[in-house]
Nucleic acid binder design. Sequence first.
DNA 1: GTCAAACTACGAGGGTTCTCGTACAATGGG
DNA 2: CCCATTGTACGAGAACCCTCGTAGTTTGAC
Lengths: 117, 117
Amino acid sequence: MTTATSPRALEHPPRDRIRLEAVLHALSDPVRLRIVRDMAREGTELSCSYFDLPVTKSTTTHHFRVLRESGVIQQMYRGTAKLNALRGEDLDALFPGLLDTVLAAADAQAARTEGAA
Amino acid sequence: MTTATSPRALEHPPRDRIRLEAVLHALSDPVRLRIVRDMAREGTELSCSYFDLPVTKSTTTHHFRVLRESGVIQQMYRGTAKLNALRGEDLDALFPGLLDTVLAAADAQAARTEGAA
DNA sequence: GTCAAACTACGAGGGTTCTCGTACAATGGG
DNA sequence: CCCATTGTACGAGAACCCTCGTAGTTTGAC
């Protein structure tokens, strides 16, 4: 039984322990990069079930955990759902422009591959 | 026996086959990120033996191959040495600003960790 | 209390990665 | 030709990662 104030706690790295290598690794997986792109496009907190990913729910949980433990996203429970948000401020303070540049690169690559289809 | 024009050929992905995920993955390893930072700092072609890495030569060869096959660097033989250069133009054409942003992020992180020492 | 929805935990399989040691090839100098 | 230098190839071990299925937990609705 957990305390009433934080029913289910989730471990997040503090800002000063976010490592660039871990962020790059988190973003180097196609499924996770897609998740991050979706989150950036919507701009608001999204539940895990919002995403229509080509993997099972178990694998989805795994990817969200990698994103959280690397410091890319923040997660919090709300009822049975789990809300996800990009840690844009933290990332921009540590690595200015990195997230935006990667997102732009992903958009550019998507435009190229879609255009070739 | 190879042709005289290209004594030892090395496979490089053409520009349009460089994938963002592969680039991010290549940069997500500490040893490789360090190699890329050194290359960017020197700005000129460097031989593999220039780098003083905390791994054996075999492992060094492995990391340079990952960098080459992901499209981050270009390699060519020159005598017994092998010269390495960043594919800055290709990367910038595909993913504008990505390399510089990652390098700046790596510098920022290095400054923080060194400052704390 | 019962039930469905949302997500997690655990374990496992299969693949990839990082690392190394040893043995080998290619080049250039004496 | 002999040899030092530079890097490669191959194999192997340990670790990690992505994926899944099954079973379980937490929450909110009825």
